[in-house]
Design a protein around this nucleic acid. Structure first.
Lengths: 194, 194
DNA sequence: ATTATTTCTTGATTCATGTCAAGATATTGG
DNA sequence: CCAATATCTTGACATGAATCAAGAAATAAT
């Protein structure tokens, strides 16, 4: 059940069997079918979720009802609204499955407990947060530096299977574009290649 | 010399006098005058800098020679190119003083050493990274959700003294605008207020 | 299979912001 | 104090992306 989760952790730290047992006692497994919500705007985010199977997205909705995708989380990734999770303020994010998924949920109490009971987990989170900050900063500089075409092709090169798993309008949303604009960009790109 | 630095740390952790002494042995104080660089594109970022006095900015330069500001760091803040610092790849950032400044520089070796010699420093960095990630995510959602006016007024409300300390074209750059556009936005805002 | 739903494409048009250029204002340095 | 430099404003114009609308294509449901 937790194999993928332990695999992920073991890329950064080493876990004893005893520690794995502690995790098993303190996390919850949850299945979430496509289109179903893990978190809705206005709720307090009470978990960090590890995606062991499937794929989720987090997004915000603006006053014109346009969705803007903050993050995709395929299997092997974590997803949460960290702001809400830490401060216990209400969230302005939605988190939703975009494929039938299987999750490991870590509640706040469990998260706090596990960080002291399993020192490696604290270290792991340190690196997660640092890495998350570094990637977000890259995303920001890409927004500033790259043309739409470049941002799109870069995304494809980093996540080659994204076009097969994620509808194009969501990729547009992630890149900060309308679906129409992305469609036209793709047309141009593919004409060029011929 | 290190008072501001210790004050900052003591907001998250408690330091003994012995630990302060360790810091004093392992960090460097540096003065940097306005317009002078702390880091140039193409170099490897070999430090994390704490700003004890003055103000710095980090920015990228695109192929049209436009600057895009990633971060402002007034006194009490840290600045670095964390990507370059961690991976030891060359940086694509510039870091520059925008006021006469005084810095506490922590080299990579010192940073690593201090995190083990002063456990609280490790904890402090954990929170720094987590917090940095959370603010960057807010910045990204603001980019998606808010109009230019809203982004500008929000910036002013969070950093009321920024207009006095930072030239307007740099604020424009931080917000992802041209100086002309920001000038027009301000005009509209101030007409409204009358 | 057929219908219904979602996703994607394409065209016409609008609009916000960028670009270019010039002048005004403010700041800095000798 | 004056000159030089940097910063900010304003106008005219260009342009890239959004919007609106309709239809095509693909996918899912019955």
């Amino acid at each position: 059940m937790l194999d993928n989760f332990f695999n992920k952790l073991s890329k950064g730290i080493t876990l004893t069997e005893a520690e794995k047992a502690i995790f098993r006692q303190h996390v919850n497994v949850k299945k979430l079918r496509k289109h179903h919500d893990l978190l809705q705007e206005g709720e307090i985010c009470k978990f960090v979720a590890f995606v062991s199977k499937g794929m989720l997205r987090s997004y915000v909705v603006d006053e014109k009802n346009n969705e803007h995708i903050i993050q995709f989380a395929p299997e092997g990734w974590f997803i949460s609204d960290l702001n809400s999770f830490i401060t216990e303020d209400i969230s302005n994010l939605h988190i939703e499955a975009i494929e039938d998924s299987e999750l490991i949920l870590i509640s706040k109490a469990a998260h706090v407990y596990l960080e002291t009971a399993v020192p490696g987990f604290y270290k792991f989170n340190y690196m997660q947060y640092r890495g998350a900050y570094m990637s977000l900063q890259k995303r920001l500089t890409d927004m500033f530096m790259l043309s739409i075409e470049e941002r799109y092709t870069k995304l494809l090169s980093i996540y080659p299977d994204i076009t097969r798993r994620v509808p194009q309008h969501m990729i547009a949303s992630y890149l900060g574009l309308t679906p129409e604009t992305l469609s036209r960009v793709r047309k141009k790109l593919f004409v060029k290649k011929d």
